[in-house]
Computed example of a mutant assay.
Amino acid sequence: MACVLALAAFTVGVAAKADTIEIDGKAVTIERFGDASRKVPAVVLVHGSDGAGERYRAVSRKLAAAGFNVFMVHYLDMTGGRRTRAMVANIPAWNKAVRGAIDHAADQSGAVGRQVGVIGVSFGGVLAVLSAQQDPHVGAVVSYFGYVPGGTVTKRLPPTLILHGAKDRIVPVESAMALQQIVQKQGVPNEIRIFPEAGHGFGLREEMQAMQEVTAFLRRHLGAPQGK
């Protein structure tokens, strides 16, 4: 599920540093954006199935500039660094990588209260939601045009923000509604924004609006400093 984010225009001067964690004998890269020694909340970015490309680094830099420490996990390292056709079968392995990244982010000296936000894009939204219900360190989750495999959300989610395009032909907007129904039944604080003209990926104007909502949402639920 390739997805196109228009945030390349947002690239700011926040350099990335690479960390490596080991999971089941596999070396998984985590790109870190921001200063981990700062007392600001940590955010794990889970890219789409197209891989950890520059469009996701642009998102990470924008979030870091907004006052977060951002950790982009290369979960495809669990399968040789590439997407496979057996995507559903690989969910457990990729989910381990995401959870490892969450624990890694929570362990950083700057993480406020060891609470971490998780942002998932497209297929990354699947992994973000699954990990968010499993890891107590997750204080907020954001799903960008993601979906939830049937019957996989069995535990309470943290506060959830859902962003989706009404004209998405890859992941229908009904998937966003289904996730909203889950969190509403759980009584979880939740917000949803459907962009009427967007497909599977947002244009520049929509992405700017979405980023504003994401940063505000994370600040409310993770305690990021205001005024950024």
Rank of each mutant, 00 (worst) to 15 (best):
Thr20Tyr: 05
Thr20Trp: 04
Thr20Pro: 02
Asp24Leu: 04
Lys26Val: 12
Val28Asp: 01
Val28Gln: 03
Val28Glu: 04
Thr29His: 01
Thr29Phe: 08
Glu31Pro: 02
Arg32Tyr: 09
Arg32Met: 06
Arg32His: 05
Phe33Asn: 04
Gly34Asn: 00
Gly34His: 00
Asp35Met: 07
Ala36Trp: 03
Ala36Gly: 03
Ser37Val: 02
Arg38Ser: 03
Arg38Lys: 09
Lys39Pro: 02
Lys39Thr: 05
Pro41Leu: 10
Pro41Phe: 13
Ala42Asn: 07
Val43Ser: 08
Val46Cys: 02
His47Trp: 00
Ser49Met: 13
Asp50Met: 09
Asp50Gly: 15
Ala52Gly: 06
Arg55Val: 12
Arg55Glu: 10
Arg55Cys: 11
Arg55Ile: 14
Tyr56Leu: 01
Arg57Phe: 04
Val59Arg: 02
Arg61Ser: 02
Lys62Gln: 10
Lys62Val: 05
Leu63Tyr: 03
Leu63Lys: 04
Ala65Cys: 13
Ala65Val: 11
Ala65Trp: 09
Phe68Lys: 14
Asn69Gly: 07
Asn69Trp: 03
Asn69Lys: 02
Phe71Thr: 02
Val73Met: 03
Tyr75His: 01
Tyr75Met: 00
Tyr75Cys: 00
Leu76Ile: 01
Asp77Ala: 01
Gly80Phe: 07
Arg82Asn: 14
Arg82Gln: 09
Arg82Tyr: 09
Arg82Phe: 11
Arg83Gly: 01
Thr84Phe: 04
Arg85Phe: 14
Arg85Ser: 14
Arg85Asp: 15
Ala86Leu: 12
Met87Ile: 15
Met87Glu: 13
Asn90Ile: 04
Asn90Pro: 03
Ile91Pro: 05
Ile91Trp: 11
Ala93Leu: 15
Lys96Tyr: 03
Val98Ala: 00
Arg99Gly: 05
Arg99His: 04
Asp103Pro: 04
Ala105Gly: 05
Asp107Arg: 12
Gln108Met: 11
Ser109His: 14
Ser109Lys: 15
Ser109Cys: 12
Gly110Ile: 07
Val112Thr: 15
Val112His: 09
Gly113Ile: 11
Gly113Asp: 12
Val116Gly: 05
Val116Arg: 05
Val116Pro: 08
Val116Glu: 05
Gly117Arg: 14
Val118Lys: 07
Ile119Phe: 07
Gly120Asp: 02
Val121Ser: 12
Phe123His: 06
Phe123Lys: 03
Gly124Met: 04
Gly125Gln: 10
Val126Met: 09
Val126Ile: 15
Val126Leu: 11
Leu127Gly: 02
Leu127Trp: 01
Ala128His: 14
Ser131Met: 11
Ala132Leu: 02
Gln133Ser: 07
Gln133Lys: 06
Gln134Leu: 14
Asp135Gly: 10
Pro136Gly: 05
His137Val: 01
Val138Thr: 06
Val138Tyr: 05
Val138Asn: 07
Gly139Ala: 08
Gly139Thr: 08
Gly139Tyr: 08
Ala140Gln: 11
Val141Asp: 10
Val142Ser: 13
Ser143Asn: 13
Tyr144Val: 11
Phe145Gln: 04
Phe145Glu: 03
Gly146Ser: 11
Val148Lys: 14
Thr152Gly: 14
Thr154Pro: 04
Leu157Gly: 13
Pro158Thr: 13
Pro159Leu: 12
Thr160Glu: 13
Leu161Ile: 10
Ile162Gln: 09
Leu163Ala: 13
His164Tyr: 04
Gly165Val: 10
Lys167Leu: 15
